[in-house]
């Protein structure tokens, strides 16, 4: 058979094969059930119970809205977070609800998702780009720290020596809390900060750091901590040094342990953030985005409430506003 004679047969076979493939594809599409869009909840850490509430509420709310939702734990490691983003971009997720590990470092991850047309909504932890995210739903940490600091000043009678334990130094929440606190406390010259050190928002690290600070500065009146986990670690260190109850310890977050400790007189105060409100808000935003809405506020501040022994009984359900 000549080469010219084979050409039409090959073409016919190719067309028949293509038609067969199309038919198979169409059949499989019609046979497969409709898969809902998937939402990724990328959380900075699941080591802290506060973030567990944030992550699980976001996941549950997304499921409630009809999506498949998966939690990715970054373990406070920007490299792990980057790997999660590579994964979820490749897997074609419909939206990302992000609690970032690093205000600057996480921007590239959010931009990668954005470039793949996957919207990113941050919750609790701000990233330094409004272009990379659709919306950032954040606690008003500065205002919460201002309220806490005013109570701190009143409790200490405008004089005393104190220690500050900072959170992760590359996280905006750390500095918004610290700056809000100092915007008040620094106005009172008889309040002296004798040590300021980072304990990475971590309870055991705070215990170690506080033990070390107490070696050099045993005579203190108060400790201001950037979160409740550190406050509880600091309290443990003070207890070990025989100073428990005599040194006022202030936290931030409103975790269940901290609220309980305020009721028991172990901690002086904390600032209640509302992880459930933040998580539900971003999940709702993601749902509206997937359904076509495109106008969202770049940042939504969520109020933070001061909890002291005067009002602690009202804050029973962690993460939900008492009046809501």
């Amino acid at each position: 058979m000549s080469r010219v004679g084979l050409q039409p047969i090959r073409m016919l076979m190719a067309v028949a094969l293509a038609a067969l493939l199309c038919a198979c594809n169409a059949a499989s599409e019609s046979a497969a059930p409709h898969r809902p869009a998937r939402i990724a909840v990328v959380i900075s850490t699941l080591n802290n119970p506060w973030f567990v509430v944030l992550a699980e509420t976001a996941r549950d709310e997304a499921k409630q809205l009809g999506y498949e939702a998966t939690i990715f734990d970054s373990q406070n490691d920007p490299a792990k977070e980057a790997a999660h983003f590579e994964n979820l971009v490749a897997s074609g997720y419909g939206a990302v609800l992000l609690s970032a590990t690093d205000a600057d470092g996480s921007v590239a991850n959010a931009l990668r998702a954005r470039a793949a047309h996957i919207p990113v909504f941050t919750m609790d932890r701000e990233i330094n780009s409004t272009e990379a995210t659709v919306s950032q739903v954040l606690s008003d940490n500065y205002d919460g720290a201002v309220s806490l600091a005013q109570y701190f000043v009143a409790t200490l009678g405008e004089r005393g020596r104190y220690v500050e334990l900072l959170g992760l130094v590359n996280d905006n929440n750390t500095w918004n809390r610290s700056k809000g606190f100092h915007s008040v406390v620094d106005r009172y010259p008889n309040l002296k900060m004798v040590a300021q050190q980072s304990a990475d928002f971590d309870r055991s690290r705070a215990l170690e750091v506080m033990e070390s600070i107490l070696q050099a500065q045993p005579d203190i009146d108060a400790v201001f901590c950037g979160n409740d986990a550190m406050a509880l670690g600091a309290y443990q260190a003070l207890l070990g040094a025989g100073r428990g109850g005599r040194v006022k310890v202030f936290g931030f977050d409103g975790s269940a342990d901290a609220v309980q400790s305020i009721a028991q007189g172990k901690l002086a105060a904390t600032a209640m953030q509302y992880p459930k409100v933040m998580a539900r808000t971003v999940a709702g935003f993601a749902d509206r985005y997937i359904k076509g809405e495109r106008r969202f506020p770049a940042r939504v501040p969520i109020a933070v409430d001061l909890i002291t022994h005067h009002n602690v009984s009202r804050f029973v359900d962690r993460g939900t506003r008492p009046n809501s």
Binding site: E126, N128, T130, L138, N141, Y142, N172, W175, N176, K179, G180, S183, P297, A298, R299, V300
Partner: peptide, 15 residues
């Protein structure tokens, strides 16, 4: 409209 500014700038404006 503060939503386009960083939280640090917004807080600084309050101060």
């Amino acid at each position: 409209n503060l939503s386009d500014d960083s939280s640090a700038d917004s807080n600084s404006l309050s101060r």
